[in-house]
Simulated scan of single mutants.
Amino acid sequence: MSVPVRTVCGVQEQLGFDAMPKRLIKVTPSRLGVWADCRRRFRMTYVDRPTPPRGGPWAHSTMGAVVHNALKGLFDLPPDRRTPETAAKLVAAHWKDDGFADQAQAGQFRERAAGWVHDYVKDTDVTEDPVGLERWVSAPVGTIVAEGRVDRIDQRGDELVIVDYKTGKHALTTDDARGSQALALYVLAARRTLRRPCTKVELHHLPTGTVASWEHTEESLGRHLSRAEESADEFQLAIDTAKAGGDPEVLFPPNPGRQCGWCDFRRSCADGQAAGPALDPWAMLSP
Rank of each mutant, 00 (worst) to 15 (best):
D158A: 15
P207E: 04
D247T: 02
T127E: 13
E159I: 07
E215K: 14
Q155G: 11
T208K: 10
D176Q: 12
T193C: 12
L183F: 07
R156A: 00
G157W: 07
G168S: 09
D158W: 14
R223G: 10
K243Q: 15
T174V: 00
E147F: 12
L160H: 01
V201F: 07
D151A: 03
A228V: 03
A146R: 12
S220T: 11
A189S: 07
K243N: 14
D123T: 10
E202M: 12
D151E: 05
A177H: 12
E219P: 11
R135H: 10
R152P: 07
D154Y: 04
G132P: 05
T241L: 11
I153K: 06
I153G: 03
E215W: 13
G179N: 15
A177K: 12
Q155T: 08
G142H: 01
D151Y: 02
L133Q: 07
D164E: 06
A171T: 14
V121S: 09
V201N: 09
V126E: 04
A244G: 09
A232Q: 03
L133T: 01
V211C: 15
D129W: 14
L237T: 13
W136T: 06
E159G: 09
T208L: 06
T199P: 07
L194N: 07
V187L: 03
T174L: 00
L133E: 03
T127P: 13
D176R: 13
T143K: 14
S220W: 06
G148L: 01
R223Y: 14
E229W: 04
S226R: 14
R149K: 13
F235A: 04
K200T: 13
S231T: 12
I162E: 07
F235E: 11
R149A: 06
A190V: 09
T173H: 15
T199I: 00
L185Q: 13
A182R: 08
